[in-house]
Nucleic acid binder design. Structure first.
Length: 184
DNA sequence: GCCAACGTTGGC
DNA sequence: GCCAACGTTGGC
């Protein structure tokens, strides 16, 4: 199966909300604090600059998709793992072989909140990984059709968004290459 | 606050 | 390598 070009990334808004992303320099934040190997491996092995991101608010009164973003850089060592003051401090992570990774995420647009409850009512989203019972992964792949269905629910123009994503963070080597699922 | 689901740890 | 105990996630 081809790697996903779309992702859902969970963030607790009390820690990093869509508004925090909008207020950040270049509307970009390093995605730190991932401490799950499966989620880390998605970053390490599959994520590429320009990939679409559903910015999801979790562990809050209104969980759901709060905005759209894109991967805006390449993966690197998560700086919080060696920070003894960080809640994500991992003293067992060897400095010469970092256990945990981070990647830059840039805002594309804030949207209305597409609530988890509304997502569950959409037949097009019935198979979404994040909706599966017991799912706890903070990063999950999103199918192209699911991405498109969510943009439709949010009333976001996919073509305009794609141009925006291509403007930022897409290395020259990828420009002109066919992305999985083609142009949306 | 409850609890289901799942990942990690550590004894053996 | 098994697996019970424990910790965490995250919706409700």
């Amino acid at each position: 199966m081809a790697d996903s070009r779309y992702w859902l990334m969970k963030s607790e808004p009390a820690e990093a909300s869509i508004d925090d992303l909008a207020a950040a320099p270049a509307q970009t934040l390093p995605w730190t604090g991932v401490r799950n190997y499966q989620a880390r491996n998605f970053m390490r092995d599959q994520m590429q600059p320009g990939d679409g991101v559903l910015f999801y608010h979790s562990s809050c009164p209104e969980p759901g998709v709060a905005g759209l973003a894109c991967i805006a850089g390449s993966v690197q060592a998560d700086t919080t793992q060696w920070d003894s003051k960080s809640p994500y401090h991992d003293p067992k992570s060897p400095p010469d072989a970092p256990r945990w990774l981070q990647i830059d995420v840039r805002l594309l647009c804030k949207t209305r909140l597409l609530s988890l409850a509304e997502m569950r009512t959409s037949p097009a989203l019935a198979e979404m990984t994040v909706l599966r019972k017991g799912n706890r992964l903070s990063i999950t792949p999103v199918q192209t059709a699911e991405w498109q269905a969510i943009l439709a629910l949010l009333g976001v123009d996919a073509k305009a968004l794609d141009r925006n994503a291509a403007t930022y963070g897409t290395p020259k080597s990828r420009i002109g290459k066919t992305r999985s699922g083609g142009s949306v």
